[in-house]
Design a protein around this nucleic acid. Structure first.
Length: 931
RNA sequence: AGGCGCGUAGCUCAGUUGGUUAGAGCGCACGACUGAUAAUCGUGAGGUCGGCAGUUCAAAUCUGCCCGUGCCUACCA
């Protein structure tokens, strides 16, 4: 007779294969149909809040894998906080202003042969706005496809009128309190386009420069050897000489004071010249200036020059100021003379050394068209790029230069006009780091901020400690304007709250465009004469926009909290959003906008190389979602150490899919085993076998671990814990042991009811634990038992754990049992390899164990734990040939073949079965009860 | 070039304040089962812990240097 129909095999509709790429969109649709976001808000409206503030991605293209990593992590944080019972509202946002979009629109113009400067500002800005709207929509779709839950109907953007107005209002705060000031800074400037250029607009091409060796006669020598000598510098930009204000040396560089005894014909130097140059470069300098015979008078270390002063090469011709010698850490002896001429208006390092470090004023020497300003002696009216040779010659005539040459080198050019660029001093607006103690406030706040991982604190702290004042202005179009009126005479900004309030009000209604479109009088009102003021047309650094999100998102929305519990971004945002948000908030509110900061690494390919089109190793989230599903991507995130760089590629995706299948099959088995289970079948804790109590103990300890790891955002730990649980505890151990009970026992048998009661608990908890990670699969599994979509798994929280589940005594006992079981398994394998047995049910092991382990087995059916037909435990000494494992020497096993016949129903081998009865006693009872 | 990180089995990761023979899961190999079946179970083989040098009775762990690699910042006067 075939007994298969009398056996209670697992039964479920939950498919073994996920088919995620098609299943996930359906689940997504269901969530949208019931508006799960709103339902969750309603359900948690009185719960304590958890606010993860979304750092806005830039709205200018398709998502890449880094976006996916970031948003998945955020979603796992939010969903797991929600599972803890918190109200974790998530409001996604976008960064919309800025150069990349402006640039894209300009590119489109070029293709159409349109001139940007001929297009009205408002029209250009509208096109930028439209562009951002488009990509914002695309990205929103893709984020949602990843399973990210949030207020996608009402996201925030930095270009919303309210946001623009608020950003201007924030600027007003630092304008009114005086920490905003107008200063000067050298920037990359195109004399052709007459505008500042950003990094991305610069390309490097070979360019031939006139080079000069210029002479700075020492007027005050800190070291006697320098008396009467001249410091020699080398530069490729003779036009910066009028702007020279210092010369830098290297502290640790050895210099020589060398006298020229004879020179070649036509050389600019001559007998009697005494020059100071670096030892390492002496040969090349001497030959470059054409000296044929020289004599070293002395050697001087750079640091011995401290306090020395020189005269300008053009001293006596209108350049009659002191040129101090300063120590510069950037000075090298790779090229030149070992001295670097410092023009604070024409180089960032020059600016930092002369102006920021030594307080030397930055002179204006070059106009926006690249012409040296007319009031400058000798060189006024000359062009900085075209007239270099002329400048060099004039200087040589005045003995200011003792060598002229040419150099072909890589030089910055405009991406647009292809014209060479210069560094030019420009008026810019800054937030002072010191004036109102911004730096100290920020550092103090950082010390109070929790960092995940901890190293982030050091990184951000050292950046804040070292950074210069924040330059807020950009000579650009697509952004929030610096809503400032500067007095034409004094240059001072107008600090009138009433005027600024008018500006902000107008922007709320009309957007930032109104600043560009309106006459100054509209905002200045009757109190000021518009002719006295310059309306600044610069826009704000976009980092000020995104740095202000805490104000127009966290503070302005009732459903969010400020400061945020967490900011979570890639490690590049130490320099970016973490940084700008901190400074913005500290300058306006004297506190950090976040309580904690989490950073994740970057995504690399399988070999640990960065992804690039040329390497062909780019993995896109769209492709992974389309081929494997979003849950695979989500599982990949948590199975990686996301505090470090992550890797992804074909094999890693394959391994992730393997891991996914383990979770899926575990859920599937539970569903099958729980077929038809209802509340009446449940059994109380006291009535359960110890194995079930052990499983409940595991649930209790995993629950505690998961709650703790959720608080510390250790999702990788949660993944490991759950994976281990499904693999080792459930699949290979508990399920395996209980198959006989589940399949063959009578439905109302205590053991079977206990097993199903526990499996129900396991299922309930496992789905909740997995829900933040495998948000689709957990829902699919949950729904297959709770068909009402309104009972979504994501509306649940982690179930409370009854106190008596935690049971260390049971845990210790079962650790012993599993140890003995391991030896038995190994012994059975040996017997199997010897051909003695096939299935373990064919065996009956004799297990020799010590007294304490005997105690662990007390009351247990050892055979069912070993999945053998019978088993004997003995405290006798084991016979010589008994099987042992090296690592576990207190257990020995002798495997014998089980005695009897195979029960046709439960497949155990037992003497109860004979030629007359083909099933065992237990099975007879069950079968007869069925009919 | 500078700042901050990272480098443990084919893959993803654990490795507490330095202390027995460096662990887990997956994959792989072999085997079992055919009542989780495009599953499941068992057993096993894989590591000079990036390299070199040092401190120590003892180093994956501490120190230095080097190599590789990532993020950030800069530079080519």
């Amino acid at each position: 007779m075939n007994y298969k129909d009398t056996v209670f095999l697992p039964r479920t509709d939950f498919p073994m294969r996920g088919g995620l790429p098609t299943k996930e969109p359906q689940i997504l649709q269901n969530w949208q149909d019931i508006d799960i976001y709103k339902k969750l808000r309603e359900a948690r409206k009185d719960a304590p809040r958890f606010t993860l503030h979304d750092g806005p991605p830039y709205a200018n293209g398709q998502l890449h894998i880094g976006h996916a990593l970031n948003k998945i992590l955020k979603d796992v944080v939010n969903r797991s906080q929600s599972m803890l019972g918190k109200n974790a509202n998530y409001v996604p946002g976008w960064d919309c202003h800025g150069l990349p979009i402006e640039w894209k629109i300009e590119e489109q113009y070029r293709k159409k042969g349109k001139d940007k400067d001929a297009v009205p500002v408002a029209e250009f800005r509208q096109e930028c706005r439209d562009f951002a709207v488009h990509w914002l929509g695309v990205q929103s779709e893709e984020f949602q496809r990843l399973g990210v839950l949030g207020d996608w109907q009402n996201p925030y953007t930095t270009m919303a009128y309210a946001a623009e107005a608020k950003i201007a209002e924030e600027l007003g705060r630092i304008l009114m309190d005086g920490s905003l000031y107008r200063g000067a800074k050298p920037v990359m400037w195109s004399p052709v386009e007459k505008t500042a250029l950003a990094e991305a607009e610069i390309e490097y091409e070979d360019y031939t420069s006139t080079t000069i060796y210029a002479r700075f006669p020492v007027t005050h020598a800190a070291h006697a050897a320098l008396e009467g000598a001249s410091i020699i510098i080398w530069t490729t930009t003779p036009w910066t000489m009028p702007a020279n204000r210092a010369v830098a040396y290297g502290d640790d560089i050895s210099y020589q004071v060398t006298e020229v005894l004879a020179a070649n014909d036509g050389a600019l130097c001559g007998k009697g010249d005494v020059v100071v140059i670096a030892d390492d470069l002496a040969d090349s300098v001497i030959s470059a200036i054409g000296a044929s015979e020289t004599k070293i008078r002395a050697h001087v270390m750079g640091r011995e020059m401290t306090g020395s002063v020189a005269a300008h090469p053009m001293a006596g011709h209108g350049y009659d100021f002191d040129v101090p010698l300063l120590a510069g850490s950037h000075v090298t002896t790779e090229q030149g003379t070992g001295f670097v001429h410092i023009a604070p208006g024409h180089g960032v390092e020059d600016y930092e050394l002369a102006h920021l470090k030594h307080g030397i004023a930055v002179p204006d020497t070059v106009g926006e068209d690249g012409v040296i300003l007319p009031h400058l002696p000798v060189f006024g009216g000359m062009h900085v790029l075209r007239d270099n040779a002329k400048i060099a010659e004039i200087m040589a005539e005045h003995k200011g230069v003792i060598g002229i040459g040419k150099l072909v080198h890589s030089y910055p050019h405009s991406w647009r006009s292809k014209a060479p660029l210069i560094f030019r001093n420009t008026a810019q607006w800054f937030v002072s780091m010191e004036l109102h103690g911004l730096r100290d406030i920020a550092l103090g706040e950082l010390a109070k901020t929790k960092f995940y991982p901890a190293a982030g604190q050091k990184r951000l702290t050292s950046m804040i400690a070292q950074r210069p004042d924040w330059c807020l202005s950009r000579q650009r179009t697509w952004g929030v304007p610096l809503t400032i009126f500067a007095h034409k005479q004094t240059g001072e900004p107008l600090r009138d709250p009433a005027v600024h309030a008018r500006i902000v009000e107008a922007m709320k209604a009309e957007g930032a465009d109104c600043w560009f479109m309106s006459e100054a009088s509209r905002f200045l009102g009757d109190d000021y004469n518009p002719d006295d003021y310059e309306k600044i047309t610069d826009i704000l650094d976009v980092w000020f926009d995104s740095g202000s999100t805490h104000s127009f998102v966290l503070e302005d929305r009732d459903d969010l909290e400020s400061p945020a519990d967490l900011y979570l971004e890639g490690s590049d945002q130490h320099r970016g959003w973490f940084h700008s948000s901190l400074l913005q908030s500290c300058s306006t509110r004297a506190r950090a906008p976040y309580k904690a900061v989490l950073t994740h690494g970057f995504v690399l390919d399988e070999q640990g190389r960065k992804m690039s089109k040329s390497l062909g190793n780019v993995v896109t989230p769209q492709k992974v979602m389309g081929q494997n599903g979003a849950d695979i991507l989500r599982l990949w995130v948590v199975s990686s150490d996301y505090y470090n760089d992550l890797r992804i590629g074909a094999e890693i995706i394959k391994r992730t899919t393997d891991n996914y299948r383990r979770f899926r099959n575990t859920l599937r088995y539970l569903l099958g085993a729980l077929d038809g289970f209802d509340a009446d079948e449940k059994l109380g804790y006291a009535d359960m076998p110890e194995l079930e109590k052990w499983v409940l103990h595991r649930l209790a300890s995993i629950d505690a671990a998961i709650r703790e790891m959720t608080e510390t955002y250790d999702f990788h730990g949660i993944f490991s814990e759950l994976h281990q649980f499904c693999n080792s505890d459930l699949s290979a151990f508990y399920f395996e042991i209980r198959k006989d009970t589940l399949y063959c026992d009578n439905p109302d048998a205590t053991a079977r009811r206990a097993c199903r009661t526990v499996m129900d608990e396991v299922f309930n908890r496992l789905t909740a634990w997995l829900a933040p990670i495998l948000c689709f699969t957990a829902e699919e599994a949950w729904q297959s038992r709770h068909a009402d979509i309104n009972q979504s798994v994501h509306l649940r929280s982690y179930d409370p754990v009854p106190a008596d589940w935690h049971n260390d005594t049971v845990a210790a006992k079962w650790a012993q049992i599993r140890k003995a079981r391991q030896v038995v398994m190994s012994a059975l394998e040996t017997a199997r390899n010897d051909g003695k047995i096939g299935a373990s049910l064919q065996a009956t092991p004799m297990v020799y164990i010590l007294a304490d382990m005997q105690a662990a087995f007390a009351g247990q059916d050892a055979a069912s734990l070993f999945i053998t037909s019978s088993a004997t435990l003995s405290s006798d000494a084991a016979p010589d040939g008994a099987f042992r494992l090296d690592a576990i020497d207190d257990v020995a096993v002798v495997v014998a073949v089980a005695d009897g016949e195979k029960c046709a129903r439960c497949w155990k081998i037992t003497p109860e079965v004979s030629a007359d009865v083909d099933i065992c006693g237990r099975c007879q009872d069950v079968v007869s009860a069925q009919s």
